[in-house]
Simulated assay, not measured.
Amino acid sequence: MLKKRIIVCLDVKDGRTTKGVKFLNNIDIGDPVEMAAEYYRQGVDELVFYDIMASARGRGPILDLIANVASQVFIPFCVGGGITTIDDIRSTILAGAEKVSLNSQAVKNPELIREGARIFGNQCIVLGMDAARDVSKPSGYSVFINGGRVDTGLDAREWAQKAVALGAGEIVLNSIDADGTKEGYEIPLTRMIAESVPVPVIASGGGGTPEHLASVLTDGKADAALIASMVHSGAYTIGTIKNELKTLGVPVRS
């Protein structure tokens, strides 16, 4: 079995790391540059940086902040939020990101996925997908954009498959229902998407204990688990999480 990745997510608002529950009641929890450096020291495999207000405010990525984070970490670094054009993708990568996450804009302009993959390679284009339960959809889940505020009406499985066909090389799959709850990942959603596409799926939303990660990495068939609250709170370090996963029989990177 391929070794599983542990990825820390930094949600950034007005230049500061923030954390909420189900995209609501966000509070300031620190400086993203300092936090990125600390998680790198702890041995995290990758970092994801989301500017959670960029799309809603209609502005592009904050390149100097991205460059400052990139200067502190020497691991894959993915940036999302406010990336609406090929020039935005180029400038974000030049600022130090290895990958860009397209979420709201991918729905509004799917050709951005195709063009981004053609110019920069599939490995640089990540589909960010926020999904919530919706019994009216064939998969049982609907896709939301603009920080979970707008229901697109798209079926989650169909959108994931379309995005991969367009060129997305990876999917960060976030469950809005589980987001920030620390009560466990949405296993049925994660497994369904992982079984529906030929690219890596990163589970996001709900991680609270190493057992939750073990479950989504095995039963949920995720290639990686994205975490935030459980390390931001200081309850765990990357090292303790990896050690517990090894004890639970989940192969992880050292």
Rank of each mutant, 00 (worst) to 15 (best):
S139W: 04
V216R: 00
G128N: 07
I227R: 00
L63W: 12
K19A: 10
L65M: 12
C78H: 03
L173S: 01
C9G: 11
C9I: 13
G169Y: 03
C78Y: 01
S91G: 04
S196K: 00
K22E: 13
R59A: 03
T18G: 02
G140N: 07
A228L: 06
S204A: 15
R133F: 10
G140F: 09
E111N: 11
S233R: 05
L94N: 15
R133A: 12
L154D: 02
L65Y: 06
K13N: 09
K99W: 02
F77I: 04
S229Y: 10
K137F: 03
I125P: 05
S139V: 05
E38L: 15
N25R: 13
A214V: 06
A97P: 07
V164D: 00
E195G: 02
D31A: 09
V21K: 14
Q105V: 06
L47K: 02
G96H: 10
R253P: 00
R191F: 00
T17H: 08
R90M: 09
V143N: 01
D177W: 14
D11V: 09
F74I: 09
K242D: 10
I86P: 01
I7E: 03
R5Y: 06
G58C: 07
D179Q: 10
K3Q: 12
Q72R: 15
N174E: 10
G169M: 06
T218E: 07
A117E: 01
G249R: 11
P210C: 08
E115N: 12
I238Q: 10
E158Y: 08
D14E: 15
G30V: 13
N68Y: 12
T240K: 13
K13R: 14
S204F: 04
M129E: 07
T17Q: 12
Y236I: 02
A235C: 04
L2I: 11
R149P: 03
E186D: 15
N122G: 01
R118W: 02
A194L: 00
L47M: 10
D155W: 01
I7C: 04
D31H: 10
H232N: 08
G148D: 07
I171R: 00
G43W: 14
S233L: 13
K13S: 13
Y39C: 07
A132L: 06
G58E: 03
T17W: 04
Y236L: 08
R133H: 13
D151H: 04
S91V: 14
L63G: 09
V164F: 00
Y185D: 01
C124M: 11
L65F: 09
E98I: 01
N103L: 03
Y141Q: 02
A203P: 01
G207P: 09
V135K: 12
E195L: 12
E34H: 12
E46H: 13
D64L: 06
G140C: 09
K99T: 02
L47E: 07
K4A: 06
F77Y: 15
P32N: 02
A235R: 14
D11T: 09
L10E: 08
V8Y: 08
G249L: 01
G208D: 10
V21C: 08
R114P: 00
G128T: 04
G60D: 10
V231C: 09
G80N: 12
